[in-house]
């Protein structure tokens, strides 16, 4: 077994009488950069929550052969970082304090941060462009700035796997592109496994190493971005004919929703 291999086997999630995910199976190797696409209500966020073990599920989700749901919260937090959707958080903590809390899994309550902790926090702030507002309160930041802080905190948590739920929401097009590339860098240069759930099809196609499309709780596609069948699957899943625009040479074509 390869290091940091995440395996999802026959995952089924039900809420009340409704089954959100039906027997999903796939595995993820170290430093893969996977994007999960799908229409609203397909079960994408539910998939991330199941991997993070914050909701109940049937089936097995293992990391290096060990069930994630059976890990202690501390161990789990040292293996899996999560950037969830947090548009409503109104915390009056400074960005600096919030970042310091990202080292929680590695510290006893009475332990102080070491210079190594501080340097990883500083590096994460620099990488995400948050250094300028590190002394500001989170509640005073714009939606985009907050999103960058949450991503910086996940990087500072320094886990082999990071789960991103809509990390590009609240960002302007330039920041969205930067952040999407940053996620790609986190995966390739820092050898981290990244699983991103997003609606941004073009950013996903340009920057991911693998795409999983979920439709009605089942995997409709699992393959590389260059796979010619991807567009057909997206057409079917989103019930529209995407228009493909080959604007930039050497890059994947951009997709725009059709009229119907």
């Amino acid at each position: 077994m390869r290091e940091n291999e995440l395996s999802v086997c026959n995952l089924t999630v039900s809420i009340g009488d409704r089954t959100i995910l039906h027997e999903i199976s796939f595995s993820v190797s170290q430093n893969e950069n996977i994007t999960v696409l799908g229409p609203n209500g397909a079960g994408k966020t539910t998939l991330l929550k199941a991997i993070a073990s914050t909701i109940g599920f049937k089936g097995d989700i293992t990391l290096n052969g060990k069930k994630i749901s059976l890990m202690s919260p501390y161990t789990r937090a040292s293996k899996l970082g999560v950037v969830a959707q947090h548009p409503d958080i109104d915390a009056d903590f400074t960005v600096k304090t919030f970042m310091e809390l990202s080292r929680y899994p590695y510290k006893k309550p009475w332990e102080r941060l070491t210079s190594a902790d501080r340097s990883i926090i500083e590096e994460s702030l620099q990488l995400t462009g948050c250094t300028d507002f590190m002394d500001r309160q989170i509640c005073s930041l714009s939606g985009g700035e907050r999103q960058k802080v949450f991503i910086a905190a996940a990087i500072a948590q320094d886990t082999p796997i990071i789960l991103f739920d809509e990390p590009l929401s609240h960002l302007d097009p330039v920041q969205r592109n930067k952040m999407s590339k940053l996620i790609s860098v986190i995966s390739s240069e820092r050898k981290k496994t990244v699983i991103t759930v997003t609606h941004e099809i073009n950013e996903a196609i340009q920057n991911s190493s693998r795409i999983i499309v979920i439709d009605k709780g089942k995997i409709a596609f699992d393959g590389s971005c260059g796979d010619t069948s991807l567009k057909k699957v997206l057409d079917k899943v989103f019930e529209t004919e995407f228009i493909s625009a080959d604007w930039i040479s050497g890059r994947q074509p951009l997709l725009f929703p059709g009229e119907n």
Binding site: T54, P73, R76, V82, A84, F93, S102, Y104, P109
Partner: peptide, 22 residues
């Protein structure tokens, strides 16, 4: 003993759990 847990919980329970708070 729980001061950091309370910091994280007072921000958001989902964030607290993702940082390892039991």
């Amino acid at each position: 003993y729980f001061h950091r847990d309370l910091d994280l919980i007072s921000i958001d329970t989902e964030i607290a759990v993702s940082r390892g708070v039991n």
